[in-house]
Amino acid sequence: MTATERPTVLLVFGGKSSEHPVSCLTAASVLAAINTDKYDVVPVGITAEGRWTLVPVEVAAAMKTVDGQLPTVSGEHPEVVLGNGGVLYRVEGEPGPVATIDVAMSLMHGPYGEDGTIQGLFEMAGIRFVGSGVATSANGMDKALMKTSFARHQIAQGPWQLVTDPDWVQRREQTLARVAELGLPLFVKPARAGSSIGITRVTDLADLPDAIETAREHDPRVVIEHGLTGVREIECAVLQGRDGAPPRPSLLGEVRMLTDGFYDFEAKYLPGEQVALDIPATVEPELEAAAQALAVRTFEAMDAEGLARVDMFALPDGQVLVNEINTMPGFTQYSMYPSLWQATGMSYPELIDELLGLALARPLGLR
């Protein structure tokens, strides 16, 4: 690529996970903000069945929620495949090369989008991409592997247990007894789902088996956490540093529930009157500094690249615990990650440009 050429950006959205519609909203948001004077953009929507389609920019940019219905990739557009060297090929209608990709930005959430699978495809195709690599993406997606990594790096977190498929099928009573030792309330979660999908808050142990079954509808691996009470839910957006500089933390945000519910899928994407997002959060300077330092430490411990959102609990005594790291956080214009950077001084278009610049600057292959 010469200095006068514009990088070609592959925007991938949709996908096979339950977070498909959120990904479509994200694509429309990014397309409205990306600098088309600087980048050539090729949107590719993946249907719920896994078919890659070449979606016209104007169609992808127009996706939105209508009467409470979230958008999806229709599958009516030409099928494409990504080949070696980043060449995108059209395979029907008029087969042949469509574009040579310089950098990919996956806007997919959940399995097959942020779990290392598509990152591996990009690695094999020999193209640079926004965000973390295969191992970090996989560990960040699987809450059990993530929490195990936190423990190895001595990152403070709350008590938790993993329930595997053999645990549930072969030794159910022992497993229920082990989980009960965590103490109520409990949060029962699919290990590899995002956006709070499939999560149940349990306040009576009699409801625990049904909650596990609900989580297992999304994943045979289930993570169960002790529900900390009297804590503040705070979040920090972390951005990779330039030229070897350390990661950069944003100001903090706080999630405040206005009802007796919790921050589930509906509260995140169809909020109504359920939740308040304080951006920036009103926190004491000491708490902000401690949380920012912990977010950066978590980013580095997980070997994250590009971007990540670190979700934490602030305890009444001032201690801060990490709940999770999200290596591909919600990325619509109004999502927490971009909103935190907006509050910190970096606009949404500037953030997109910075992420693409970071990806373009890093080498191919093992890093």
Results as ranks from 00 to 15, higher is better:
1 M>S: 15
14 G>I: 03
19 E>G: 00
26 T>K: 10
27 A>G: 07
29 S>E: 02
30 V>H: 13
31 L>V: 05
33 A>Q: 10
34 I>G: 01
34 I>D: 00
36 T>Y: 00
37 D>C: 10
38 K>E: 07
40 D>Y: 00
42 V>I: 15
49 E>P: 01
54 L>K: 09
54 L>N: 07
61 A>Q: 09
61 A>C: 03
63 M>K: 00
64 K>N: 12
72 T>I: 15
77 H>M: 13
83 G>V: 12
86 G>T: 08
89 Y>V: 03
89 Y>F: 14
90 R>L: 14
95 P>R: 09
96 G>C: 07
102 D>E: 01
108 M>E: 09
108 M>H: 07
109 H>Q: 04
113 G>V: 06
113 G>C: 11
120 G>F: 02
120 G>I: 01
122 F>N: 01
122 F>T: 04
127 I>S: 00
128 R>S: 12
132 S>H: 02
140 G>D: 08
145 L>Q: 14
146 M>V: 02
147 K>R: 13
147 K>I: 00
148 T>R: 14
150 F>N: 02
154 Q>C: 10
161 Q>A: 14
166 P>S: 05
168 W>S: 01
168 W>F: 13
170 Q>L: 15
171 R>G: 10
174 Q>F: 03
176 L>G: 13
178 R>F: 00
182 L>Q: 01
183 G>V: 14
183 G>H: 04
185 P>C: 04
188 V>F: 04
190 P>R: 08
193 A>C: 10
195 S>R: 09
200 T>M: 10
203 T>L: 05
208 L>H: 10
210 D>H: 12
213 E>Y: 02
215 A>Q: 05
217 E>G: 15
219 D>V: 03
220 P>Q: 06
221 R>F: 07
228 L>Y: 12
233 E>S: 05
237 A>E: 06
254 E>V: 04
258 L>E: 07
261 G>V: 02
261 G>H: 12
263 Y>E: 01
269 Y>T: 11
272 G>T: 12
273 E>L: 08
275 V>L: 08
279 I>S: 09
281 A>H: 09
285 P>C: 05
287 L>I: 15
287 L>H: 14
292 Q>Y: 03
294 L>V: 10
296 V>F: 11
301 A>R: 03
303 D>A: 13
303 D>Q: 13
305 E>D: 08
305 E>H: 06
307 L>S: 09
315 L>M: 10
315 L>D: 02
316 P>N: 04
322 V>Q: 06
323 N>A: 08
326 N>W: 10
331 F>L: 01
332 T>G: 12
333 Q>H: 11
333 Q>I: 03
336 M>C: 12
337 Y>S: 11
338 P>G: 12
341 W>T: 09
344 T>I: 07
347 S>A: 14
351 L>D: 01
357 G>P: 02
360 L>D: 03
360 L>N: 05
